[in-house]
Nucleic acid binder design. Structure first.
Length: 584
DNA sequence: GCCGTTTTCGGCCCGACTGTTTTCAGTCG
C-alpha cells in the first residue's frame, strides 16, 4: 500500500545524492570552512555521481568508503540521509545560510568569501538585495570593494536576468560542429600566416554530453595574424577580448569560444591542460608532485634539475609522467591514470548496423527505402525498421495489421537488395503493467524487437523494464533511463536492478544516439559492460539524415570505456542474430 | 574531510587576472 508507513521509500539516485553533497560543500564554504574541507565534499559528490553502483546500496552494505574520496564522515551523512531522509548538517546550514546567498555566488567575480561579507556586513541575502545595495552605493563603502565592484556586479546581475540557476550548457551536437568548422577555417585561411596546428580542447574534445564553451588551441608563425582570422570568421558574432596570443568571442549561437595561440614547443602542454577535465588534471598534478614534478599549462618543472620541460605533443607530456597517452574521452579521473595500457575503444567505423529507426509508418520522415539508402551511405550492412507500436498515439501508431504489412514489405525488399539486410522490427511500448502492446505471436514474427517506456514515467519503470527483459521476444531496452540532457532528469529507475535483469535474461541495453538522450549514459554503460551486458548503439533516427546520430552514441560508448566487442552491432547480422535471446 | 613508498598528523595542483591595494586576497579556469 502506498500509504503504509513501513513501505521503504525508493532509493535516491546517485545524481540526487551528489547534488546534496555539492550543496553541503557550497554551504560549508559560505559558512567559512577551510577550503580543503569544502573540496572534500565536492570530491565526494563527484565520486558519488561517477559511481557505477547505487550509492544507497553501497551505503547499506557498509562498503561506500571504498570509493576514493568518501571517508567515515561522509559515510555517516549518507547513512543518516538514507535512514531519516535528511542530513542534519545540511538542514542546519540551510537554516543558517539563505539560498539566495548561494545563488549570487554564481555571478562571475563574486565568490564565497566576498558573498559572505556582503551578507554579514550589509545583510544581503540574494539577487534582489544585492541589486538594491548597488543602487544605494552601499557596496563601495566596504573595504576591498569599490565602484568597479558595483559596476561589475550590476552588469553580471543584468546578464543573468532572473535565472541564477547556473550556466546554461549547450548540447555537444550543437557545439561540436561549430568547433569543427572553426578549426577547418583556421587551418585553411591560417595557411597565409604560417599555421601549424589547430585543435579542439575542453569538454568538446572529451565528447561530454554538453559544453559551456569551446576551447581552441593553435600554433602559428604569426599568432596575431591567426587571431585576426579567428575574429573575422563569419561564425563569430562579437569579440570581447583580443590579445596578441588569443581571443575570446561569442558565436552567433551565443556560444563562448576561446582561442589560444602558443609556441610549437608548448603545444602539447597547453592542449593537455585545456582538454581537462579538472578532476583529471588535479589527479595528474597530485601524482606528479610525489615524484618531484610540477605540471602546468606551460611545462613540467622538475625539482631535481630546476628546469621546466616543454613538449610539442601530448604523447610526450604523458610519457614524461610515466603514463600512456590517454584518449580525451577517458580523462575524467575514473581510473584512467592507473592504466598501464589503454584499452581499445570503439570507433564509428566499427558499427555494421543500426537497429532503431522510424519511417513515415509512424513519426519518421522517410520511407524504408530512404532509410536503406542513408544507411548504405554510412557504410552499414543492415538496419532494423522499428516504428512505434499500437498504443503510440499522436495518430502515429501502427496497428497489428499495418505491422504485418510492413513485415511483408521488408521481406520483399530484401529479395531485391544485394549485400544489405533490412530487419522487420518494432519499438514497442512497455505498458504500465509491464506487458507489451502487440500480442506474443506477432512479436515472435519480428526480426528485432526494441522495448521502451514512453508513458507513465512515475508508474514503476523498474518493474516494467525488468518484465520486458524477461519477455522472450524483446531484444533490447531503448533509451533505458528516459533522461533528456539539460532538459529532463531520468525517471526513478533502479539501474542496478535493470542491469542485473538484462544480464540474467540476455537482453541488450541501448546507447541511444539521439544527442539529447545519449542514454544509457557513460557511467551506466560502463557498469552494464562490467556486468556482462552487451550494448547496442542506435541512431533512433526519425529521418534519413539523422542516422548520423550514431556518432553521439559512439562518443558515449568511448566515455564508457567500451571496445568493439562490447557492442553487439559491431558484428555482422548473422553473428548478432545468434547472440539474441535463445540464439534465435 | 580525506589520506598514507615521507605520514594516523599535516599536508592537500597551478597560474593569470582583477580590483583593491602598498604587497595581496579572492576569483577563475
Amino acid at each position: 500500500m502506498a500509504d503504509d508507513p513501513q513501505t521503504p521509500p525508493s532509493d535516491l539516485s546517485n545524481a540526487r545524492i551528489a547534488d546534496l553533497f555539492d550543496e553541503l560543500g557550497d554551504l560549508y564554504e559560505l559558512d567559512g570552512a577551510v577550503v580543503h574541507r569544502v573540496m572534500a565534499y565536492r570530491n565526494g559528490a563527484k565520486a558519488m555521481r561517477d559511481a557505477p553502483r547505487s550509492i544507497a546500496a553501497l551505503t547499506r552494505a557498509g562498503t561506500v568508503t571504498e570509493l576514493p574520496g568518501i571517508g567515515k564522515t561522509l559515510a555517516e551523512k549518507l547513512e543518516a540521509l538514507l535512514t531519516t531522509g535528511e542530513i542534519p548538517a545540511l538542514t542546519k546550514l540551510r537554516a543558517k545560510i539563505p539560498d539566495g546567498l548561494r545563488m549570487i555566488t554564481r555571478l562571475p567575480g563574486l565568490g564565497p568569501k566576498r558573498a559572505k561579507r556582503l551578507h554579514a556586513e550589509l545583510g544581503i541575502d540574494g539577487p534582489e538585495a544585492l541589486r538594491a545595495a548597488i543602487a544605494d552605493q552601499r557596496i563601495r563603502a566596504l573595504s576591498g570593494f569599490g565602484p568597479k565592484s558595483e559596476e561589475k556586479l550590476l552588469a553580471a546581475l543584468d546578464a543573468a536576468g532572473d535565472d541564477l540557476s547556473g550556466p546554461k550548457r549547450e548540447l555537444l551536437s550543437k557545439a561540436l560542429p561549430i568547433a569543427e568548422q572553426l578549426v577547418a577555417e583556421l587551418r585553411d585561411r591560417g595557411a597565409a600566416v604560417g599555421v601549424h596546428r589547430v585543435e579542439i580542447a575542453g569538454s568538446a574534445r572529451r565528447q561530454a554530453d554538453s559544453v559551456h564553451d569551446l576551447d581552441l588551441i593553435a600554433t602559428a608563425d604569426d599568432a596575431e595574424g591567426l587571431v585576426e582570422i579567428f575574429a573575422s570568421s563569419e561564425l563569430i558574432d562579437d569579440v570581447h577580448r583580443r590579445g596578441t596570443n588569443g581571443a575570446s568571442a561569442n558565436t552567433h549561437t551565443g556560444l563562448s569560444v576561446d582561442l589560444r595561440v602558443v609556441a610549437p614547443d608548448q603545444f602539447g602542454n597547453l592542449l593537455q591542460h585545456f582538454t581537462g577535465s579538472k578532476a583529471h588534471n588535479v589527479a595528474i598534478r597530485e601524482a606528479a608532485v610525489k615524484r618531484g614534478l610540477h605540471v602546468s599549462e606551460y611545462g613540467i618543472l622538475d625539482d631535481a634539475t630546476g628546469e621546466t620541460e616543454r613538449f610539442a605533443t601530448e604523447e610526450e607530456v604523458y610519457a614524461r609522467l610515466g603514463l600512456p597517452w590517454i584518449p580525451p574521452e577517458l580523462r575524467e579521473n575514473r581510473g584512467e591514470l592507473q592504466l598501464e595500457r589503454v584499452p581499445k575503444l570503439i570507433e564509428l567505423e566499427d558499427l555494421r548496423g543500426d537497429l532503431h529507426m522510424h519511417t513515415t509508418a509512424s513519426d519518421g520522415r522517410g520511407s524504408i527505402r530512404d532509410m536503406v539508402d542513408a544507411a548504405r551511405a554510412l557504410g552499414h550492412e543492415y538496419i532494423a525498421i522499428t516504428d512505434h507500436s499500437a498504443s503510440h498515439g499522436f495518430g502515429d501508431h501502427v496497428t497489428p495489421d499495418q505491422l504485418r504489412a510492413t513485415i511483408e514489405e521488408v521481406r520483399r525488399l530484401n529479395d531485391e537488395l544485394d549485400d544489405f539486410t533490412v530487419l522487420a522490427g518494432s519499438e514497442v511500448n512497455i505498458l504500465t503493467d509491464g506487458s507489451l502492446d502487440y500480442d506474443d505471436e506477432l512479436l515472435a514474427e519480428l526480426d528485432w524487437v526494441v522495448a521502451s517506456v514512453h508513458t507513465a514515467f512515475g508508474s514503476d519503470p523498474t518493474g516494467r523494464i525488468i518484465a520486458a527483459c524477461e519477455h522472450p521476444s524483446v531484444d533490447v531496452i531503448a533509451h533505458p533511463t528516459g533522461r533528456l540532457i539539460e532538459k529532463r532528469t531520468a525517471y526513478d529507475l533502479d539501474v542496478d536492478a535493470m542491469i542485473e535483469a538484462a544480464a540474467r535474461t540476455g537482453t541488450f541495453l541501448e546507447i541511444n544516439g539521439s544527442p539529447r538522450r545519449r542514454d544509457l549514459h557513460d557511467v551506466h554503460a560502463r557498469q552494464a559492460k562490467d556486468a556482462g551486458v552487451l550494448l547496442v548503439i542506435d541512431s533512433d533516427a526519425h529521418g534519413p539524415e539523422t542516422q548520423e546520430n550514431v556518432r553521439w552514441g559512439i562518443a558515449t560508448a568511448r566515455r564508457a570505456w567500451l571496445g568493439p566487442d562490447d557492442v553487439a552491432n559491431t558484428r555482422p547480422w548473422p553473428a548478432l542474430r545468434k547472440l539474441r535471446k535463445g540464439g534465435r
